[in-house]
């Protein structure tokens, strides 16, 4: 006992920090790391229903390549991701620039709340709300469009409109938080720089493209990576709004994964979908980081 006590006295400072973080790490390993690794292992098996598993190597992954519904889900998810990156993110930047420029100075507080409320609203509530907004006969959106003579659009029932409807939902939900990131970035730009540019005769556009944008590069990179990850992980909203329909027009990869895993009870195949999703997100994020020069040293 005395020896143990002496040993503890000698090592307590080295060991204590690990014990402090242990509760988090234990839970993290048990509930996050272990299932993630186990799922990778599972993806190499044919594990259907309550059967004993059968090792099939990469067959699940090979099957995905000829699975029409899977390919459709990848296309749909990529469509949404592209809209997040090329539509939502620039819009968020525009809103942030507006805030920063003081255009809405009088109502700044109100606008900030209005833009931020969707972020803290439950995905279920948002989906329910948009179901009513997008309703063909009684929806608010078609009623508004009707006032300017536009025929009712079958937002959630048409193959061509369902995805744009989900993009609109995505923009409404995530515009605020992305604008906030950009706003934080904009407010960190030293005033002297824009002032100096103005003295040198730069107009607003030139200041924006040659001063603001380069300085905002890390924020843009962050927003884009977030948009990519968020888009490929989007689940609750399309599930509740369209459940992947009509005719799989809004079948996201996550919805397909859920359908395969729980409705079809094909756990190995669902795990393979999950890991393909990981691979796609990882690759796209990496490309994005390279594109924005995240790995370049600052001296360059």
């Amino acid at each position: 006992m005395a020896a143990l006590s002496a040993w503890w006295r000698k090592h307590d400072r080295a060991i204590a920090p690990y014990l402090f973080v242990a509760p988090f790490l234990v839970l993290f390993f048990v509930f996050s790391i272990y299932p993630v690794l186990y799922s990778l292992y599972l993806s190499f098996f044919k594990a259907t229903g309550l059967s004993s598993w059968q090792f099939i190597g990469l067959e699940n992954y090979a099957d995905l390549l000829s699975d029409r519904r899977f390919i459709k889900s990848v296309t749909n998810t990529s469509y949404y991701a592209a809209a997040s990156v090329f539509l939502l993110s620039p819009l968020a930047l525009l809103v942030a620039v507006g805030f920063n420029a003081g255009i809405t100075r009088q109502l700044r507080g109100l606008y900030r709340v209005a833009y931020f409320v969707p972020v803290i609203t439950s995905a279920v509530v948002i989906a329910m709300m948009f179901r009513m907004i997008f309703d063909e006969q009684y929806g608010l959106l078609n009623a508004m469009l009707g006032n300017v003579g536009i025929e009712p659009i079958p937002w959630l029932r048409s193959k061509s409109w369902a995805m744009p409807a989900i993009v609109v939902l995505g923009i409404w939900t995530y515009l605020g938080v992305n604008a906030l990131y950009f706003l934080a970035g904009l407010q960190n730009i030293p005033h002297e720089l824009t002032e100096a540019a103005a003295i040198d005769g730069a107009n607003g556009w030139q200041t924006f493209f040659y001063i603001t944008m380069p300085i905002l590069r890390p924020v843009i990179m962050f927003v884009v990576v977030q948009a990519i990850i968020g888009s490929y992980n989007l689940f609750a909203q399309p599930l509740l709004l369209t459940n992947g329909g009509p005719q799989d027009a809004t079948l996201f990869m996550t919805i397909y994964l859920y359908q395969v895993g729980f409705q079809q009870f094909k756990l190995g195949y669902a795990s393979a979908i999950g890991y393909t999703l990981v691979l796609i997100v990882f690759t796209l994020s990496l490309i994005n980081l390279l594109f924005f020069g995240a790995f370049r040293s600052s001296e360059e």
């Binding site: 006295r9 307590d12 400072r13 060991i15 204590a16 014990l19 242990a22 790490l25 048990v30």
Partner: peptide
């Protein structure tokens, strides 16, 4: 401080073990 550290570490360790055992 040493007692505090010892006590806290023991508490953290117990919490971790409890977390393990919980499921």
């Amino acid at each position: 401080r040493r007692d505090f550290l010892r006590f806290s570490a023991a508490l953290a360790g117990i919490t971790a073990l409890t977390a393990c055992a919980a499921p």
